[in-house]
Design a protein around this nucleic acid. Structure first.
Lengths: 262, 262
DNA sequence: CGACAAGTTGAGGTCGTTCAAAGAACGTGG
DNA sequence: CCACGTTCTTTGAACGACCTCAACTTGTCG
C-alpha cells in the first residue's frame, strides 16, 4: 500500500507518466520501498549499481577511500533520482541524514525499461546530466579551491536546493553535520568550523544552534565561492569585501589550493 | 563528404543504429563536424550545453575557476561521447591534445531526438552513467587522496583507457603534458614531476622521452592508488612496498589530504 | 647543431591538518 | 522545569604536504 503510493508519486512527479503505463508497470515490479531512520545506511546490493528515488528526507552518497577516509559525493533530497555505483574502485554507500523514504531499483533493468519510454528516458538523461554537472563543479572545487571558497560554494549550493526565504537572505536548516560537510568538501571538521567562524565574524552569516545557518546576502557568498562563469547575478560587490577588517582572513579570491597569499 | 562519413561511423559504432534511421537523419541535421590541430580549443557556443563525439584524437574538458586556475574534468579519446556544460558556475572548454576530429551537437535537441530511439537513449544513459562514475571517482581522489595516490590512480586509469601491452606491463603514450596531468589531479606540475620521479626511482615505472611511461606492474600502481573496492585483481603485494628504501617517500597509504604521518 | 619549450630538481613558505582541550547544544531523567 | 551527561562544535598550537619561486636539465623541432 505504502509502496504503491510512493511509487505512483514517483512516476507522476519524476516523469509525468501515469503509473499504469506499460513502462510504469514494469518499473513497479522491480521497485523496492525502504524507510530509513535518522542515521541509517540504505541496504543496497553492492554487487550491482542501483537507482534510487528519494521520496522524502535527505541522504548522503559517500565513497570509502580507505579506513578513515570518506568522500561524500553528493547530497540528495526529496524528489531526487540518482544512481549508486556498484563497488569498483571505491565502495559506495547511501545513508540517511534524517528519516527518509526511498525507492530502490536495480540499475540495469531500470535503464533497460526506462529507455523504452521516451518521456522517461528524456527525463533521466536530463537528471543524469544535472548530476554530472554538479559532480564536475565539485571536482573543480576539490581540485582548485581553498577552504573558504569550498565552504562558500557549499552554502551557495545548499541555499539553491534547500534554502528558504526570499531575496538575497536565505535560511538554511542543514540536515548534515559538520563532519558531513567536511567529508563533502575534502576538509576536516575543524577547518569547516574555522571557516564558518570566519564568515560569522565577517557578518556574512548567522548560525543558530547546530543546524541553522542564515545567509545574510547570497551574492556575497556567491562571490566568495570563486565561481567563474556567466552567473553574475548582480553587480559586483564593492571593495571586494573587507573581510580582513575583522580577522586574519585569506582575503580576496585566494590561490589554487594553498600556498602564496597574493 | 567527410562530415557524412564521420557521422555514419558515429551512429554505427556508438549506437549500433543505421544512419538512415529516422533519429539518425534528425541527428545528422544538427551535427557539425570539426577538425582541430595539435593544441586547439574547440569552438563551442558557451550559451548552451553541447554534446561532443570524438572521432579520433584526444581532448581535455577543462573548467576555469579563476585567472590561473584550470581544472581538467575529464580526458576523452576516440569513440567517446560526452556533454559539455554551458557556462554557469564555471566556464568550460574543450581543447585538443593532438590532432582531433569531432562532431558537435547542441545538447537539448540532441537529447530530445535521442530519447525517441530506445537504442540510442539506452546507450546514452549508459555512457552518462560511466561519465558520472568516473567523475565521482575523481572527486574521491581530489578530496581524499595525496599526490602519490592521485598520480597512481591517474596512471591506472590511463592504462585502462589507452594503455597498450599485455599482462601487468603497460605502455602509455600520454598525449597530455605534465601541466595537463597536474590540472587534472589538482596538483602543480612540480609535484607531478616529483611523484613521477619517486615512482621511477622505486622501479615501478620507466619514462622514455616526455610522453611515454611504461608501467612495470599495473597491480603495484593499483595498490598505490588507494582504491578501496572489490577490485582486488591479484593477491596483495608483499611487504606493502619498500618505497622508502629508495627515497624519502610518503610511505604506505598516507593520510587524507596532507598532514600527519601515522 | 642550436634554440625554445617542457620537464626536473632544490629551498623555503603557507594552508590545512593533527593533536588536544574547552565550550555549546541537545536529549534524558529526576 | 532544571541538572546532568553525551555528543557535537569551536578554538588553539604545532606539524607536514604541497605550493611557490628559481635555477638547471632534458627533449624536441626547425
Amino acid at each position: 500500500m505504502t509502496e504503491l503510493a510512493s511509487f505512483d508519486i514517483f512516476m507522476r512527479t519524476a516523469f509525468g507518466v501515469e503509473p499504469a503505463a506499460r513502462a510504469g508497470l514494469q518499473l513497479k515490479a522491480m521497485a523496492e520501498a525502504k524507510c530509513l531512520g535518522p542515521h541509517e545506511e540504505a541496504p543496497l546490493g553492492k554487487r550491482e549499481s542501483n537507482v534510487l528515488y528519494i521520496g522524502s528526507g535527505a541522504t548522503k552518497l559517500a565513497a570509502r577511500a580507505s579506513d578513515n577516509r570518506e568522500q561524500i559525493v553528493a547530497f540528495h533530497f526529496g524528489g531526487d533520482i540518482f544512481s549508486v555505483p556498484a563497488d569498483d574502485l571505491h565502495s559506495y554507500s547511501v545513508s540517511s541524514l534524517e528519516p527518509t523514504s526511498l525507492l530502490v531499483f536495480p540499475a540495469r533493468p531500470f535503464f533497460d525499461c526506462a529507455s523504452s519510454d521516451p518521456r522517461i528516458s528524456r527525463a533521466l538523461l536530463e537528471r543524469q546530466r544535472t548530476a554530472l554537472h554538479r559532480c564536475r563543479d565539485k571536482a573543480v572545487a576539490l581540485g582548485q579551491k581553498n577552504a573558504l571558497e569550498r565552504l562558500a560554494g557549499f552554502l551557495f549550493a545548499m541555499a539553491d536546493r534547500i534554502g528558504t526565504g526570499s531575496g538575497v537572505r536565505r535560511i538554511l536548516d542543514l540536515p548534515m553535520s559538520r563532519r558531513d560537510i567536511g567529508d563533502s568538501l575534502g576538509l576536516t571538521i575543524e577547518t569547516v568550523s574555522r571557516q564558518l567562524g570566519a564568515l560569522r565574524k565577517a557578518g556574512l552569516i548567522e548560525t543558530h544552534g547546530r543546524s541553522r545557518i542564515v545567509v545574510r546576502d547570497l551574492n556575497d557568498i556567491a562571490h566568495l565561492s570563486g565561481h567563474c562563469g556567466k552567473s553574475e547575478r548582480t553587480e559586483p560587490i564593492e571593495a571586494d569585501f573587507d573581510l580582513d577588517q575583522c580577522e586574519r582572513l585569506p582575503v580576496g579570491v585566494a590561490r589554487p589550493q594553498t600556498g602564496g597569499q597574493s
